[in-house]
Simulated scan of single mutants.
Amino acid sequence: MKYYTMFCVFLFITTLFVGASFVSDDNSSRGTHDVNEQVKKDVLKVMDDYMNTFNSKDAKAWQLTYHFPHYRLASGKMSVLESATLDSSVFIRLEKSGWHHSKWDHRNIVQGSSDKVHVDTRFSRYRADGSLIGVYESLYIVTKENGKWGVKFRSSYAE
């Protein structure tokens, strides 16, 4: 029985190694920490466009940086934007709190594939005089859908 058990373990391990040899090293659909340079460039451009259109308070251009449905997890609540229905109300609410503009403090791509990238971010909000309102950590998931990159999901510690 001892030899039978050892044989079964050997057979199992051999099967794993043989099976693994048939798996492609192409990370086009699997996440990796070694993200293609063109993908990085495309994703960071979307992130720049996202922040620039947000700061210019251009809701129409801002929504072009999204994919819908779009998901946001913040303050313990999940919100879903089913379609491109962003309007200027978000800017009005922020302006009431003294907000004038935001900027990325960092955007670190932590994982990605040819059609999905996880971006660790931190951004700061500022008043018109340049004084700091707050600093917020977030995770953005940027996806490529129908040939276009866009922000699909945000998990943020901002309110």
Results as ranks from 00 to 15, higher is better:
Cys8Thr: 07
Thr15Val: 11
Gly147Gln: 02
Asp120His: 04
Lys103Ala: 09
Pro69Gln: 03
Leu16Gln: 10
Val18Gly: 02
Thr65Ser: 15
Gly150Glu: 01
Val46Pro: 00
Ser102Pro: 05
Ser97Asn: 03
Thr53Gln: 00
Leu16Ala: 07
Gly134Val: 06
Trp149Asp: 02
Trp99Tyr: 14
Lys116Gln: 11
Tyr136Trp: 06
Asp129Trp: 06
Ser155Leu: 15
Lys77Arg: 15
Ala20Glu: 08
Phe7Pro: 01
Val35Phe: 00
Arg107Lys: 15
Tyr136Arg: 04
Ala59Asp: 13
Glu145Arg: 13
Glu37Thr: 09
Leu44Gln: 03
Met78Ile: 15
Lys40Leu: 06
Thr143His: 08
Val110Gly: 04
Val119Ala: 06
Phe17Ile: 06
Pro69Arg: 02
Arg122Thr: 12
Asn146Phe: 15
Ser75Val: 00
Tyr71Ala: 06
Leu11Ile: 13
Gly112Lys: 09
Phe17Met: 14
Phe17Leu: 03
Met1Ser: 10
Lys60Gln: 12
Lys103Asp: 08
Trp104Ala: 09
His106Ser: 07
Lys116Ala: 15
Leu86Gln: 05
Ser83Glu: 11
Ile141Glu: 04
Ser102His: 00
Asp26Ala: 06
Arg154Pro: 01
Asp58Glu: 05
Met78Arg: 11
Met47Ser: 01
Asp129Phe: 04
Leu11Val: 15
Trp99Leu: 10
Met47Trp: 01
Glu137Thr: 06
Gly134Pro: 12
Ser89Phe: 02
Asp115Trp: 14
Leu64Gln: 14
Ser156Glu: 04
Val135Ile: 11
Met47Asp: 01
Ala158Asn: 10
Glu159His: 14
Lys41Tyr: 08
Lys144Gly: 10
Ser28Ile: 10
Gly150Ala: 09
Met78Glu: 03
Asp26Met: 10
Asp26Glu: 14
Leu44Tyr: 00
Asp115Leu: 04
Phe54Asp: 12
Val39Ile: 15
Ser75His: 11
Lys41Leu: 12
Asp48Ile: 04
Ser29Met: 15
Tyr140Arg: 04
Asp115Phe: 09
Trp104Tyr: 07
Val43Gly: 04
Arg154Met: 09
Val90Glu: 07
Val23Leu: 08
Met78Leu: 15
Ile133Phe: 14
Thr143Glu: 15
Asp49Thr: 03
Tyr157Gln: 07
Val39Ser: 03
Ser56Asn: 00
Ser83Asp: 11
Ser89Gly: 09
Leu81Val: 04
Arg127Leu: 12
Lys148Ala: 07
Tyr50Arg: 04
Cys8Arg: 01
Ala59Gln: 02
Ala74Gly: 14
Asn36Trp: 02
Phe7Leu: 12
Ile92Glu: 14
Glu145Phe: 10
Asp48Pro: 07
Asp87Pro: 06
Gly98Tyr: 00
Val35Thr: 04
Ser131Trp: 00
Val119Leu: 02
Asp34His: 02
Asp42Trp: 00
Asn36Cys: 00
Ala20Ile: 06
Ser56Asp: 05
Gly98Arg: 00
Asn52Gln: 14
Met47Phe: 01
Tyr4Gly: 08
Ser89Leu: 02
Leu139Thr: 10
Ile13Arg: 03
Lys2Asn: 07
Phe17Lys: 02
Trp62Gln: 01
Asn36Gly: 04
Asp115Ser: 11
Arg122Leu: 10
Phe12Ser: 13
Phe12Pro: 02
Ser56Met: 05
Ala74Leu: 00
Ile109Tyr: 02
Lys57Pro: 13
Lys96Val: 12
Arg122Pro: 01
Glu82Leu: 15
Glu145Tyr: 12
Val142Leu: 09
